[in-house]
Amino acid sequence: MPWDARDTMSLRTEFVLFASQDGANIRSLCRHYSISPATGYKWLARWSEHGAAGMADRSRVPHHSPNCSSDGITDLLRLAHARHERWGARKIKRWL
């Protein structure tokens, strides 16, 4: 018996095509594809908004990072490290 080797995009597209038919039970399809209902509804929303391109994986990088240092501080740190290569983080922090 051969393995059923399919990629993620084809499985997502198959799920969406079955789920978008009239009278489809989305919860049972989610169980069949071993995904949560929230994920199933998310894929359906992406399909209706973007079509087949919406099924691709998206970046998980946060859009906003409030604890990130500003570019000015990062430049100062690089400058301090370039001038004093042997200094560690504590000494550079005191210097700044």
Rank of each mutant, 00 (worst) to 15 (best):
8 T>Y: 05
42 K>G: 09
81 H>L: 14
68 C>V: 08
69 S>E: 12
8 T>G: 08
60 R>I: 04
23 G>W: 02
43 W>G: 01
43 W>V: 02
19 A>D: 01
4 D>T: 10
90 R>K: 10
74 T>W: 04
47 W>S: 06
67 N>C: 06
32 H>C: 08
63 H>F: 00
4 D>I: 11
73 I>L: 15
30 C>Y: 03
3 W>F: 11
89 A>M: 11
6 R>S: 11
77 L>V: 11
6 R>W: 09
50 H>F: 13
83 R>M: 15
65 S>C: 10
53 A>L: 10
24 A>C: 02
55 M>W: 05
31 R>V: 05
79 L>M: 14
74 T>H: 09
94 R>H: 02
85 E>N: 08
66 P>Y: 05
30 C>H: 03
71 D>M: 09
26 I>G: 00
34 S>R: 14
88 G>Q: 07
20 S>Y: 04
24 A>N: 03
55 M>F: 05
68 C>F: 05
16 V>R: 00
40 G>K: 01
55 M>A: 08
63 H>V: 02
96 L>I: 14
64 H>M: 05
20 S>N: 13
5 A>R: 15
60 R>M: 07
55 M>V: 05
1 M>F: 11
12 R>A: 04
71 D>E: 15
19 A>K: 01
2 P>W: 09
88 G>A: 06
71 D>R: 11
24 A>S: 11
61 V>D: 02
5 A>K: 15
13 T>R: 12
51 G>A: 07
68 C>M: 11
69 S>R: 12
